[in-house]
């Protein structure tokens, strides 16, 4: 099933299938290792509900829900 990363839910894991944004924000996402095929896990949600913390390629990354909405994951 395909979901947006922002809807993945805490402690859930998914495989990235697509990054549907463009320009600098897309570049930054893929430079940080979010490429199709990579496994990501939502580790935590910030106390005010945004941003979220994900774990991938052995490190921790935080991104806003508005960035995470463009990332599709397969679970």
């Amino acid at each position: 099933m395909t979901k947006r990363l922002k809807d993945l839910g805490k402690n859930k894991t998914g495989i990235v299938t697509a990054i549907n944004c463009s320009g600098a924000s897309k570049r930054r996402l893929i430079d940080m290792g979010i490429t199709p095929g990579v496994e990501v896990k939502v580790v935590r949600v910030a106390p005010l509900g945004d941003p979220i913390q994900i774990s991938l390629r052995g490190y921790e990354l935080s991104l806003r829900r508005s960035d995470a909405k463009d990332i599709l994951v397969e679970i």
């Binding site: 930054r28 940080m32 941003p51 913390q53 921790e60 935080s62 991104l63 806003r64 508005s66 960035d67």
Partner: peptide
């Protein structure tokens, strides 16, 4: 503000 907020949380 297209820079977003994509930030590493270092150990």
């Amino acid at each position: 503000n297209n820079a977003g907020f994509i930030m590493e949380l270092p150990p």
